[in-house]
Nucleic acid binder design. Structure first.
Lengths: 222, 222
DNA sequence: TAGCACAACTCCTCAGACAAGTTGAGGAGT
DNA sequence: ACTCCTCAACTTGTCTGAGGAGTTGTGCTA
C-alpha cells in the first residue's frame, strides 16, 4: 500500500532549496546560510545538506567556495529544454530560430570555406528538385539552412539550430498542406540570393535576407 | 607558489568517475561498484565518493537506488548543453549571446509593457551605482540585459540567455580584473541609449546598439 | 517444484572531529 | 591619519564510525 516510495532526504532537501532559490529568497550571486544553519532549518543532518548542495552544484545552480560559503550561480536550473520548446508556441520557436539564423548567416559570410560552399551548393541543388512529398521538401529546405549555419563555424549556434528543427518541422508540414506557395520560383530565388550573399562574403545582406525569410515564414504560420 | 588552487576532492572524484564512464568502463544501465569499494579505489573517504556521485546525479549521469546500487543513466553528461558551452570557447558563447540579444532587443522594443520599462529602469539604476566588487558589477549588468530579454516576451530566448550567463560570468570577471574600463561613462551611456531605444519602440536601433555592445565585448575578450 | 525466510549486500542518514580556506576586526608601525 | 599585519571567528572540505532501511539472491522447507 505504498506505491510511492518517498525520495531520499537529500533529494527532498535539494528540491526545497531549489524552490526557495526560485522564489527569490537568495538573489543571484548571493550567499546561502551556512551548512550548520541550514541543516537544523531543513531538519536534516549536515552531510545530507552537503549532498543536496552537491546535487544542485551538479546542475549549475549553486557553487561553493571553501571558507567563503555557498553561492547562487543561476536562478533557474534549465528544465528539460524539450519541455520548453513544446510549451512555447510555434511563433516563439521561429523567433528564436530567426535570432540564430541571422547571426549565423552573417558569420557564415565571413568565415565560409570552399568546402562549406560546396556543401551549401549541394544542399541548394537538392532543394531545387521538384518533389511530390511535402515532408521531403521541408527536409531539403532544412538541410540547406543547416549547411549555412554550419558554415558559421560556431558549435553552439549549430546545436541550437538542431534543437529547433524537429519542433518546427511538424508545423511547417502542416502549413504546406494548406497553402502550397513553398516550392514557388520566388521562394527558391530568395534562397539563391542568400547563398550568393554568403558566397560574396556580404555579411549584412546575408543577415537581412535570412531575417526576411524567417519573418515571412512566421507571418505565414500566424 | 600555487596560483592554481586545486579543486575539492569531491569534484576531482566526480571528474574521474565521469571519465571512466565515458571510457565505457560501465555501460549504460549498468551498476557501479559500491561506495565502500570505490572509496579506497579513488583514494578518498566514503562521504566524498557520495558527494561525487550526487554531483553526477544532479547532471543526470548517475542514479542511485537504496539497497540496489548506483547505475549509469546516461553515457554523456547532458552533453546537450553544459558540456557544449564549456567545451566551446568564450567567443562562440558571446556570438550566440549576441544572436539572442539582438533579436530580443528588437522584439522588446515592439512589445515592452510599462511594467517591463519599470523593471528595465530599475536594473539600469542598479547598474549605475558605483561598486567596489567586480562580481557585483557584472551581476548588475547581467540583470539589466536580462530585463531587456524578458521584455521580449519570448520564453525560449530568455531560457537561452539564462543558459549562457553563468558561462560568460567567469570570463567577464576575469577580464575586468585586467582592464577596468567597464564602469566607464561611455559604457554606461551606451546602455542608456539601448534602454532609450527600447522605450521609443525603435526596434532597429535597439538591435544595432545591442549588436555593437556585444561585439565590442567580444573583441575585448579576444 | 513452489514458496518463503533470511543473510549479505547495497545505499541512506546522522554525529563528531579535525583540516583548510576566507573574511573582517583590531592592533602595531609608519 | 593611514597602511600593513596578525589573528580569531566563521566557512566549507574530509574522514571515520555507527546504525537504519531497502534490495537481492541463496538455500531451506513444505
Amino acid at each position: 500500500m505504498e506505491p510511492l516510495r518517498r525520495a531520499p532526504l537529500a533529494d527532498q532537501a535539494a528540491e526545497l532549496l531549489l524552490a526557495r532559490i526560485r522564489a527569490g529568497e537568495w538573489a543571484l550571486g548571493q550567499k546561502l546560510p551556512g551548512e550548520t544553519t541550514l541543516a537544523p532549518q531543513l531538519g536534516v543532518g549536515r552531510s545530507t545538506v552537503r549532498e543536496a548542495i552537491r546535487q544542485l552544484a551538479g546542475r549549475g545552480v549553486l557553487a561553493s567556495r571553501q571558507g567563503a560559503g555557498v553561492f547562487v550561480t543561476a536562478l533557474d536550473a534549465r528544465e528539460d529544454w524539450d519541455a520548453v520548446l513544446l510549451r512555447s508556441g510555434i511563433v516563439a520557436v521561429l523567433e528564436a530560430r530567426a535570432a540564430i539564423e541571422t547571426e549565423a548567416a552573417a558569420l557564415a559570410a565571413a568565415r565560409r570555406t570552399p568546402a562549406d560552399l560546396r556543401a551549401i551548393r549541394r544542399a541548394l541543388a537538392g532543394r531545387g528538385e521538384r518533389r511530390t512529398e511535402i515532408a521531403a521538401h521541408v527536409d531539403a529546405d532544412t538541410a540547406l539552412h543547416r549547411s549555412i549555419v554550419a558554415a558559421a563555424h560556431n558549435e553552439i549556434l549549430l546545436e541550437l539550430f538542431d534543437g529547433f528543427t524537429p519542433r518546427v518541422r511538424k508545423a511547417m508540414i502542416e502549413m504546406l498542406r494548406i497553402r502550397a506557395d513553398f516550392g514557388s520560383d520566388s521562394d527558391h530565388a530568395a534562397h539563391e540570393e542568400l547563398v550568393a550573399a554568403v558566397t560574396d562574403r556580404d555579411a549584412d545582406r546575408a543577415a537581412s535576407l535570412s531575417r526576411a525569410h524567417l519573418r515571412s515564414l512566421t507571418e505565414a504560420l500566424t
